[in-house]
């Protein structure tokens, strides 16, 4: 189970999101722009301070109201940011090894396979600045997978992608789901390919989770 009860206020925006979803399969977090999807994802990742609680498969990440039991770097998650957030001073190869070097022995998929599936083999020596948007996003995904996450959080990873990259990333996400069984929470505000992978949809609006709908098989 992924359980979360987040409250947070930022100026005029306030987030009051409570949900509980199984820690398996793909959960799609869906709602209009500005409804707080990214903020909620960052709360789960441990990147925002909020009041409330969060836990993953019974492991306490935050105890109400403010006690952070596990910080972001101790949660064993992978997060793919909307704008990739690659490290500009490191090569592509060094970028994707950054996480795996820090969580030794937990990679779920071999390095070579991830590189091949994301189609970044020819980019390994390059710097992030020389990559296209789609290439950056694929590198970011490879980096997140290679650190061996127990939970993969994706913030609109397809939003800024060209068709080539989309057709490459979709089967990869499908394999991650089918073969490795890594639970994913996937943020989007438009209908896209990944919606087909979703086992359930969390509907979000105005900083609240309105409903969790199981997708009919």
């Amino acid at each position: 189970m992924i359980a979360c009860d987040c409250q947070l206020a930022r100026g005029r925006f306030s987030l009051r999101a409570t949900f509980e979803v199984p820690a398996q399969g793909v959960t799609r977090l869906f709602g209009p722009s500005g409804c707080g999807k990214t903020t909620l994802l960052r709360c789960i990742a441990g990147l925002e301070r909020f009041s409330g609680s969060a836990s993953f498969n019974g492991e306490e990440w935050q105890r109400a109201p403010h006690h952070v039991a596990r910080q972001a770097h101790e949660r064993g998650i992978g997060l793919v940011f909307q704008h990739a957030a690659l490290f500009p001073h490191l090569s592509v190869e060094e970028n994707i090894l950054y996480g795996s070097a820090r969580r030794a022995g937990r990679a779920a998929m071999p390095h070579g396979e991830v590189v091949e599936l994301t189609g970044i083999g020819h980019l390994l020596d390059r710097r992030p600045k020389t990559l296209s948007g789609g290439e950056r996003q694929r590198v970011a995904l490879a980096r997140a997978i290679l650190c061996g996450p127990r939970l993969l959080l994706l913030d609109e990873p397809l939003a800024s992608l060209d068709l080539d990259s989309r057709t490459m990333i979709f089967p990869l996400l499908e394999r991650l789901k089918r073969e490795l069984g890594i639970p994913m929470i996937y943020v989007s505000h438009t209908r896209d390919e990944v919606a087909r992978l979703a086992d359930r949809v969390m509907m979000m609006e105005g900083g609240r989770i309105e409903a969790v709908l199981d997708r009919l098989p």
Partner: peptide
């Protein structure tokens, strides 16, 4: 953002 990314990478 890069600091956050590094945090999520452990």
């Amino acid at each position: 953002e890069v600091m956050d990314a590094a945090a999520t990478l452990g």
